[in-house]
Computed example of a mutant assay.
Amino acid sequence: MTRLSAFALGAALCASLTAPAVAQDVVDAVERDRRGDIVVEGDRIVDGEEVGRLGRDITPRPSTSQDPLARFQRPICPGVWGLSPENAQLVIDRMYDNAERAGVDINEDPECGANVWVIFVDDPQETFQQLRDENAFLVRGLDYWKRKAVTEQEGPVLAWNVIGIYNEEGMPVASPSETAAAATDARALGDGIPGNTVTTMSRTRTAIRQDIELSVMLVQRSAIAGLDAVALGDYATMRTLAQTRPPRRENAYDTVLTLFDEDDVSPPDRLTDFDLAYLQSLYSSREDRPSRMALRNVDELMEIEARAEE
């Protein structure tokens, strides 16, 4: 199911990439009680504290600990630009395989409109600036501060997510800054302060959810020499299906997010047990769970994956 775009960002890269290996089936060894908790039997083989430290390292801090983590609610549809059609398809197929393993809904329509873009260009920073100048649809949903945060990213990859805020019924909700501005106007006019009317908000459930509407990743062509389609697809999976960043410190566990780290002599070029468990944890939990309570079972999911591989 190839989804390629003809918009002009530069000449297509025709480098030959290695065909991907067949994605491993994930053995479902998860037992859930009526509350949805995960039960793992046997000796612990994963350090939960170290896993939590890595999870915090790669997850940008939300505005408050009460805000939920962003994720896709609609089925994903990846699109690749800047590779030959054959190699682009390999990356797309790999991303679909990964999404299914992680429990992310996929759009199987061959003509679906891409909401995940992986774009290979000569200069990601220059391309991003061009997109900003043209107010292209790929950046139209980013406010000033989010655009600024993209330009501050270092390395050969720029990635961002366009996020919409909704209530539990799926109705759009104003962002905190928009709500504050509206409240100021309402006070000036003597009107009531606007808000999001909910009936089920609690300590374990927020009043909102944060939906990733569009994910984009720009990759510098010169940085992919020696990488195959599986590596590119796996890295793109972690940067686009969740709001993540490369780790900023040394950690006890590996992640494919270090793929372009110049200081890492031999970074993993495949999704690690941690990576897969991170995505599975994100997408199996409630979409309105506060971020302070999210990703608490990544270590258990890693243990399940490790035991399945034994």
Rank of each mutant, 00 (worst) to 15 (best):
D273A: 07
A188F: 01
A114G: 12
Y235P: 03
M238C: 07
L276M: 08
K146G: 11
P110K: 04
A149S: 11
E108I: 09
P267W: 01
I38P: 08
W145V: 09
P68W: 12
A149C: 05
L17W: 01
T237K: 00
W117S: 14
L54E: 11
T59L: 11
L214M: 14
V198Y: 01
P20H: 03
T18M: 14
A159R: 07
E213Y: 00
S63T: 08
D288T: 12
R3F: 01
R132Y: 03
Q220K: 13
S266L: 10
I165N: 10
R205F: 03
A174I: 03
T240L: 04
E49W: 04
D133Q: 09
D109S: 05
I165W: 07
T127N: 11
R132K: 13
A183L: 03
G141M: 06
L17G: 03
E134D: 15
L301E: 04
R140N: 12
L131V: 07
G36D: 13
R248S: 13
F72D: 14
E86A: 13
T197I: 10
P62M: 08
C77L: 01
R289I: 12
L271K: 02
D97V: 06
I76T: 06
L9K: 01
S5D: 15
A294H: 02
M217C: 08
K146I: 08
N161R: 14
E31L: 09
P75N: 05
G170R: 10
F120M: 07
E86P: 00
A223K: 09
A15R: 13
T272K: 10
V157M: 09
D133S: 13
P267D: 13
N161E: 10
R34P: 01
V256L: 02
D234A: 07
T151A: 09
F72C: 11
T151V: 15
L158M: 09
D109C: 02
P194N: 08
V104C: 00
P246D: 06
G170H: 00
V230A: 14
V22H: 08
P20I: 11
D143P: 02
V265L: 09
I38T: 11
A181E: 15
L241G: 00
V91S: 02
A159K: 09
D133P: 04
V139S: 09
Q243W: 06
W145Q: 11
P124T: 09
A180K: 10
V26M: 06
P60A: 11
A182N: 05
M217N: 08
R71L: 13
F7N: 15
N297V: 13
E262G: 09
N161V: 10
C14G: 15
L241Y: 01
C14A: 07
V162D: 14
V216H: 02
L218R: 04
G36Q: 08
L259I: 07
Y235A: 05
I76L: 12
V230G: 13
F72K: 11
R245N: 11
T179H: 05
D275I: 02
A88T: 05
E305C: 04
L276R: 07
M293S: 03
K146M: 07
V40G: 04
V118K: 04
T2L: 15
Q129M: 11
E154H: 12
R270G: 06
L83Q: 04
P78Y: 00
M1N: 05
N87T: 10
A231Q: 10
V80W: 01
G36T: 06
A188H: 10
